[in-house]
Amino acid sequence: MQPCGILNRKYAQDMAIVRTKLQWGLWIAFLIVLFLLPVFVSPSWLMFLNQTMITVITVMGLQLLVGFCGQLSLMQSVTMAVGAYASTIIARTFGFPFWLAVPCGTLAAGVIGLIAGAPSLRVKGYYLALATLAAHYIIVFVIAHSPMEITGATIGLEVPAASFGSFVFQNDQSWYYLILAITLISGLFAKNLARGKIGRAFVAIRDNDLTAEAVGINIFSYKVLAFFICSLFAGLAGSLQAYYIGFIDTSQFTLWNAIWYLGMIVVGGGGSILGVIFGVAVWRLLEQGALLAGPVLTPILGGAIFPLLNAVFGLVIIAFLLFEPRGLVHRWELFKASYRLWPYSY
């Protein structure tokens, strides 16, 4: 909804993401804050921010698949694993540099996504979720039982240091700027994809696939495209995470993570790129809170901190599904509408 008195006189105005002077001001202030953040926050929080942004990238991909196209997927974390392993193996065996290995890993994950999207030709709904569940177990099995010198089997692989020319990304600050730039670019990409022709086709398929087909949308190719794009995001996030942490093994990419990513979409709200950021932020803050509360709670609970966190996540998802199925982004829209109309009620 537009503020009162703001009218679109040109098509360019209608299409703009940032519309008013106030929005421009807020955006620029926000970006300045983001760029200055590493100066003020402690190293542990910088690490938190980096991992949060990596999660934002992968959940944005999942949002395009689940929130926009309506296809269920439980394999997002294993697709990240494919990206991470592919870029690491390429870098280790063929000596590809960082800036070439990451796109290769991304593309490898995308190809796996294309293959995993193939069952959507025949099944939908729960059955598709089960197909991706099977794919999760099978890919983890393949990684863990491949020869030791290729995938490191169950032990894992060391990832070479990320460098760009002679510049080596070694501290959290340089990583912060790199991941921030990638997150902003992929966010813009996702946003524009979602509101363009492809995104609208996705929404049409989600809302009613028969109608979508009747208006000339090739359902199968768009579904597979959604899987492909989703997996590209996952592969990018996985490759970045591999290089950022410097070590990969299968225990970083569990089924829990895949479920958590879906939970973030529920909390943030389906069908919105902004919702992804809300969802991931809430989730990661809860996680960080549990980490900070860990030393206090350990004497009471014993080793049950991680299970307790799972219980809390479960309750959060249940509460959102029952009381605010449209997620936090819907609350945010309501808030924006109310302050634009203030002091009138409508």
Binding site: V66, L72, L308, V312, F313, G314, I317
Partner: peptide, 25 residues
Amino acid sequence: VFSMMMITVAFSLFFRGITPVIWGT
């Protein structure tokens, strides 16, 4: 279907989380 699936998944998260809290890990 997504909501239906997520609520059962959320319950599985919840019960897996709450039983070790009550009965120990």
